[in-house]
Design a protein around this nucleic acid. Structure first.
Lengths: 174, 174
DNA sequence: CTGACGGATGATAATTAGTATCATCCGATA
DNA sequence: TATCGGATGATACTAATTATCATCCGTCAG
């Protein structure tokens, strides 16, 4: 977990890198794009497009949801953000570009960044890949967060399920 | 890759296990369900719901797509199939219940089962999990298959992209 | 500073991939 | 064989994207 000061410094660096990368790719640096990446950098919650849209509307009341979707896709394409689809849910976005993995709570869908040492080593060993040439990998750890562990312990399974059903829409990946 | 004889034996065992598990869970064993799991067992391609629907319609011309979706969800819920969502795409399904991982071609979306030795070991080490209690994990290896490697080598990137765009619909997860 | 150009945007429609509803059917059991 | 609880099929609906197009605007050359 990065300290707040560190986070702000990281965000400034990233905004500068973003602008530079856009120019290198011949893409205009628009105020909408800056706001969207800023919102993403400010969030450690791996937000969905709808959540980023809600944030950015505070600054750009007329921004279109389609712009947010397009921009998030552009950010991922140029390597300034990563798409996360844990638990077969709809797309969430991650501004943290340092190598890491995710742990996700199967109940409340909260995501945290984790670093698993040595996972690259496992792939250095010969793995039979049927002629495929590896390019990258993702790893997702499914878990229960502390809050949901407490909830689970304090009532019957049905009550737990009821809590879950009330608190979260489905976020289906569709 | 399992031999064809082995595959048939595995399928028979699995159908029996499926029926037993349904009865244990108080779920009727309907002809539709049997056809759907048979179609899944017969496929090593990790098919999408639409593909399974196409297969099953040959035997049950009046089956509803909603039934296929519901049944696939049921199969996953009772542990008789697994949902796969590689490359942030829509859901695909896997009848192979033995522990394994997936390698997926980023171009043609072909999936192969792989077994990565020692990957469990990585989690035996202390990983800082912010209080989360781990329940499971998934690992996805992105790669280029042999066919797509050859295509990549024989023409410009745009031509490759054109081939891809023609051959595959988007399969978006949404 | 200005005009031109190519890409972005906003509004809206469309698409895809599911999920919900409900009348009727049917698998399982006593 | 009758009953009951869950399944199905048809259809409507929803969520999450993507496409379309007229207009706007960021960037750059002059």
């Amino acid at each position: 977990m990065i300290a707040e000061g560190e986070r702000q410094k990281y965000a400034r660096e990233r905004l500068a890198a973003f602008a530079a990368r856009c120019r290198a790719a011949g893409l205009p640096v628009t105020p909408q794009r800056l706001s969207i990446i800023e919102a993403l950098l400010a969030s450690s919650a791996h937000p969905r497009a709808e959540e980023i849209y809600g944030q950015v509307r505070l600054i750009h009341p007329h921004i279109s949801a389609a712009t947010v979707h397009r921009t998030l896709e552009t950010l991922c394409r140029i390597g300034e953000a990563r798409k996360v689809t844990v638990l077969h849910d709809s797309a969430r976005y991650d501004a943290n570009l340092t190598p890491h993995q995710h742990v996700v709570c199967v109940e409340c869908r909260r995501i945290r960044d984790i670093e698993i040492a040595e996972i690259d080593r496992v792939l250095e060993r010969k793995v039979a890949l049927s002629g495929f040439r590896p390019l990258g990998w993702t790893f997702e750890l499914q878990a229960l967060c502390e809050d949901c562990q407490r909830r689970c312990e304090s009532g019957p399974a049905r009550r737990k399920a009821a809590l879950r059903a009330r608190a979260e829409p489905t976020h289906r990946k569709n």
